[in-house]
């Protein structure tokens, strides 16, 4: 009995953690390139949930029944539209503030976050929305009464986040775009001198970050089935925490941070108290940062005198 409960909590934690990780990627990439906390990221994720549900409903009305086709086309459409959101937000609210104080884009990000929430509420209504169940059933381990299970949807989440991370890692490590990203991350001015179009790179980072959040948004929508215009807030804070926990600016750090946070929450909620799980998560974050001031995988910025 206890073994299965533990196994079940691990499954719960890892699923939740990989979603946190996917959203955290957006924070970490944007931070890496322009040293800015993009507070509107959680709401971009919220928008992607709506886009996913709308796309699914439109596909249904055209009589598309194949589930894998539906999932993949919803993913593609949502990533595209959410990516455009990322691009537009950067262009409208952050680019004019480049070269200003570091905190100015932070405030316009808060403005954008309010705008997105309110826009979706006005356009779609405040009520909770849902999507029908696409994938049901689960892999079960154990007897009829005592078992641990992983649903097929949870498997899809794990596979999809793994694939998304693999694509991202390839993009950053082996392509010209990735090299330019990393160069911009190191030093924006020198990269510009060397012929990198840094404005374009920053735009691409926003697009990639938003598209990754969209993958998270689609998976969450299909897995939990319901959402409203306010889901971006809690998810945004959690994913930001995960990004910092792993070391903000580090791509593997975001994933690790997400997993640590997800597992911590699941295990603490399961074995101690649900009420205080968030308190514990933040306390753990403070303790980790106390001993590793740059997060788990973050590299300290070496300051030379």
């Amino acid at each position: 009995m206890d073994f299965y409960i533990l196994a079940q909590q691990l499954v719960n934690g890892i699923t939740l953690g990989s979603i946190y990780g996917l959203i955290a990627v957006g924070y970490t990439m944007v931070y890496g390139v322009i040293r800015m906390i993009n507070f509107a990221h959680g709401d971009v994720y919220m928008v992607s949930a709506y886009v996913a549900a709308i796309t699914l409903a439109v596909l249904h009305s055209f009589g598309v029944d194949s589930v894998p086709f539906a999932i993949i086309s919803v993913l593609v459409v949502t990533c595209f539209i959410t990516g455009v959101y990322g691009w537009t937000i950067e262009r409208v609210a952050y680019r004019p503030l480049r070269g200003s104080t570091k905190l100015a884009p932070l405030i316009s990000a808060i403005g954008i976050s309010l705008m997105l929430q309110s826009y979706v509420q006005v356009a779609q209504g405040a009520r909770d929305q849902g999507v029908p169940v696409l994938v049901s059933g689960a892999l079960r381990l154990g007897t009829d009464k005592d078992f641990a299970q992983i649903t097929y949807m949870q498997l899809v989440i794990l596979v999809a986040s793994f694939v998304a991370m693999a694509i991202l890692t390839y993009l950053i490590s082996y392509t010209t775009l990735g090299r330019q990203c990393r160069a911009t991350q190191q030093n924006r001015h020198i990269s510009a001198v060397l012929g990198v179009n840094t404005d374009r790179i920053i735009s691409s980072v926003f697009v990639i970050g938003a598209a990754t959040a969209a993958v998270g948004g689609v998976l969450v929508t299909f897995n939990y089935g319901s959402f409203n215009f306010f889901i971006g807030f809690v998810m945004g804070i959690k994913a930001f925490t995960a990004a910092v926990l792993g070391g903000i600016g580090s791509l593997p750090g975001a994933i690790l941070g997400g997993l640590v946070l997800g597992l911590t929450e699941a295990l603490f909620a399961g074995y101690v108290s649900t009420d205080y799980k968030d308190v514990f998560a933040f306390a753990l974050l403070i303790v980790i940062l106390f001993f590793r001031p740059y997060g788990l995988l973050g590299r300290p910025e070496i300051q030379k005198v």
């Binding site: 928008v47 709506y50 886009v51 549900a53 709308i54 796309t55 409903a57 439109v58 539209i81 826009y119 979706v120 356009a123 779609q124 209504g125 929305q129």
Partner: peptide, 8 residues
């Protein structure tokens, strides 16, 4: 388009 054009 999608958010304000197609209401769930």
């Amino acid at each position: 388009g999608p958010i304000s054009g197609l209401v769930l």
